[in-house]
Nucleic acid binder design. Structure first.
Lengths: 116, 116
DNA sequence: TGGTTGATCAACTGAAAGGTTGAATAGTGG
DNA sequence: CCACTATTCAACCTTTCAGTTGATCAACCA
């Protein structure tokens, strides 16, 4: 897997368990045990998931006695948002374009193949 | 890898080659050969990348003679945008807090080192 | 001190990703 | 029909992922 920030972030988000962990952390800090509790897998597996999230910068981990509380770090999500921004007009325009296309097909005689 | 739509989309986006392909397609339809041209890898590898993008619903492929033109399909990106939306206030809050902090530092003017 | 709790490290496994090369398919045009 | 072009399929390889179990580390408490 590529190790540029955006790739790390997308890869980290490509797992439902990790997204659930983030959703949990959106409601506040939590320890590894607390995060692991809802999942039918070992603590070590969750620990690995947290490592992936940490490498992507999506969480930061503190140290409070023997607990390692996790906190959500939204900065990489902002990067994703910025990346996706260039495509936003595509879906916002989609209805407009569809209308346009429809009009063109209707007004011209035949449905020729579109060439840009 | 999980096969729910969001996981498929994030996984597809977690590769720079595939993101470049999407960027290319944002400028208009293209054939496999055209898409493969900038990359230092085989046509077959690109074909596999396209299959991943197609499975995620990020592209659709037509059939024009022996060419299979690819077109960008922004719908899954909109889903990502909606998913990320619940976290948007987190980073917007962060800037607000940062501003607040900055104001406090400026107004108090003690020359203390900032502690977060 | 020793025992318990919280979390990570290490080694292993099976499955999937991402690339390769070579063969096959499908459509075009002479 | 034949040759050529565009693309995919198939088999293989290497690396990474996501999980396991067992051992280890670190901090608290009795």
């Amino acid at each position: 897997m590529a190790d540029d920030p955006l790739s790390l972030t997308f890869a980290a988000l490509a797992d439902p368990t990790r997204r659930e962990i983030l959703a949990r952390l959106a409601r506040g800090e939590a320890t590894v045990n607390e995060l692991a509790e809802p999942f039918p897998m070992s603590l070590q597996a969750i620990s690995k998931h947290l490592k992936v999230l940490e490498r992507a910068g999506l969480i930061v981990r503190g140290r409070n006695a023997q607990w390692r509380p996790c906190r959500l770090e939204p900065a990489p999500l902002e990067e994703v948002d910025r990346w996706i921004d260039r495509y936003r007009e595509r879906w916002e325009d989609r209805f407009a374009r569809l209308d346009e296309e429809l009009n063109r097909i209707q007004s011209s005689d035949k449905g020729e193949k579109s060439h840009e």
